[in-house]
């Protein structure tokens, strides 16, 4: 029998999914007008739009669970960096196109099977959001895989940049598989998939694409984490300062 879950746990779990989506969506939006080609500019905007869309659905649900009348914008614009619960990998500054692609690949290779499992959640609302998002993540995975293969197996320079991005980002992949204590209760209640179980399909996907891209999986090493507890990298506060500036200059205003 699924256990009854506290709204606070479900809120924290949903909020983290929303923060992941918004922060990465924002990072992708920073590419607008700067893509390496017109087609890719459009593609990166598409990925960003998918993620901002996912964030809005998760925030709206989180706001309802919270019960304090906070809407999506209250949650997005009026929390400081230490209140954000996103994974560190999504907040790192976008860097070059290689970093953007490698991040999108590592993240989508996780989130696609994760959302596929979340579609079976006993929480109808989360299952419905996942059903929409899983289709989007399938595209993100395909898009980033195809680019990663081109960068890895393209020119010496693109290969070097892909290696560099992979080396930087690898240390942030461990956190994707770490549930918080609240999340463990949500998993036990049958509402969320167990993220530790996603490691296997993730590794299979990553190994296959890296092999085709002529890239080596980086060696095992110590992993960075802390995002789920509000301990972030240096870039998040700056990103939020920019993202939230206008909304905070006019508290209470409607846009």
């Amino acid at each position: 029998m699924p256990r009854v879950i506290a709204d606070a746990d479900l809120f924290e779990f949903t909020l983290a999914l929303a923060d992941d989506a918004l922060v990465l969506g924002h990072r992708l939006s920073e590419w607008s007008g700067r893509g390496p080609s017109l087609e890719e500019d459009i593609a990166l905007s598409n990925l960003g739009l998918d993620l901002v869309g996912q964030a809005r659905l998760f925030y709206t649900y989180a706001g309802e669970l919270d019960g304090n009348g906070r809407d999506e914008d209250d949650l997005a614009y009026f929390r400081n960096a230490d209140g954000y619960r996103n994974l560190l990998i999504v907040e790192l500054e976008p860097g070059d196109f290689a970093l953007t692609i490698v991040r999108q690949f590592l993240y989508a290779a996780f989130l696609h099977p994760y959302f596929a499992a979340l579609c079976r959640s006993t929480d109808a609302r989360l299952a419905a959001i996942a059903a929409k998002a899983v289709k989007e993540m399938a595209y993100h995975l395909r898009h980033s895989s195809e680019w990663l293969i081109r960068l890895g197996d393209g020119t010496p320079e693109s290969h070097r940049r892909a290696v560099e991005a992979l080396d930087l980002l690898w240390g942030y992949t461990g956190e994707m598989f770490e549930p918080t204590t609240a999340e463990q209760r949500v998993v036990a209640a049958g509402i969320a998939p167990d993220r530790t179980q996603i490691r296997q399909p993730w590794t299979t996907t990553v190994d296959a694409v890296l092999a085709e891209a002529t890239l080596q999986r980086p060696a095992q090493r110590g992993m960075q984490s802390g995002g789920r507890h509000g301990r972030h990298t240096e870039g998040l506060d700056r990103m939020l300062a920019e993202m939230q500036v206008l909304a905070r200059q006019h508290p209470g205003a409607k846009w």
């Binding site: 939006s29 607008s32 905007s45 739009l49 901002v52």
Partner: peptide, 29 residues
């Protein structure tokens, strides 16, 4: 318009502005 994309004051405005700028790239194409 890209100048305000990262400072759009609500998530709805952020999404519509991103989609609008994307349309402009599409028109260019």
């Amino acid at each position: 318009e890209g100048n305000w994309l990262t400072r759009a004051p609500s998530l709805k405005r952020k999404a519509t502005l991103l989609a609008k700028i994307q349309d402009e790239a599409g028109h260019g194409l």
